[in-house]
């Protein structure tokens, strides 16, 4: 597999905790921000990027795209929004629109590269092998965090992508439904199944292995 995950293996030092994650922006505020950006307000545009940039990135990363390709998808998705700023029918649903666009652009790029995945959904979201811990990871001093990270990396790809998006966006998860092309009603149950699997793996593998490895 050529694909590599574009999840940052090492957490950035200056990660921001005050980010306004996609979906956490008030809906009426989103519509107004879109209108202001369409009128040429650069600050409004930056606010949209700030609010939804991580979500767009995560969608691209979920489609077995490596960092370079995911960056291209991200860029094309934002250009597509720029082109459609003044013609989006329901600007309050911007998150879903961006997620759908990122999905389409991911597919376009996959096909452009001639390596479209035609198998089932499970493999479509294969992140590739780069969840391997790095030396820096081994320095993470909180056992629980490290165990969680290692076990998460071993989850089925579709579970990883879904949980990543769940972390990034807020309910009701319209963006996730759009990004993964699945009914919004099945996101909750799938999330529950993935968390159950994660919990079971933590109980049987992760924590114990970490403790014994010392």
């Amino acid at each position: 597999m050529i694909a590599h995950s574009c999840v940052t293996v090492v957490a950035p030092r200056h990660a921001r905790s005050d980010r306004r994650w996609a979906g956490r922006v008030d809906q009426s505020e989103v519509a107004d921000t879109v209108r202001r950006a369409a009128a040429g307000d650069r600050g409004a545009w930056d606010a949209i990027v700030e609010g939804f940039g991580a979500m767009v990135w995560a969608v691209a990363c979920g489609y077995r795209l490596g960092p370079v390709d995911a960056a291209e998808v991200s860029q094309t998705t934002w250009l597509r929004l720029l082109e459609h700023l003044d013609r989006i029918r329901e600007p309050e649903r911007l998150g879903g629109w961006l997620a759908t666009t990122a999905r389409h652009e991911s597919l376009r790029l996959l096909r452009l590269r001639g390596r479209e995945i035609v198998t089932d959904d499970e493999t479509r979201f294969d992140h590739g092998p780069s969840y391997e811990p790095t030396p820096e990871d081994l320095l993470v001093d909180r056992d629980r965090d490290r165990a969680l990270w290692e076990v998460f990396a071993r989850l089925p790809p579709r579970c990883r992508t879904l949980l990543e998006l769940v972390i990034i966006v807020a309910p009701p998860y319209a963006e996730i439904a759009a990004a993964l092309d699945m009914p919004i009603g099945s996101i909750g149950p799938t999330r529950a199944r993935c968390l159950k699997l994660l919990r079971r793996m933590l109980a049987t593998g992760g924590v114990t292995d970490v403790a014994e490895g010392r």
Partner: peptide, 24 residues
């Protein structure tokens, strides 16, 4: 708990967000 561990790692590279802003 997962969010606390994963969120920083899901941050897009700064240049990706820069490009998104610049596209304006």
């Amino acid at each position: 708990e997962l969010a606390a561990v994963m969120r920083p790692r899901l941050e897009p590279p700064p240049q990706v967000l820069d490009a998104a802003r610049q596209s304006f």
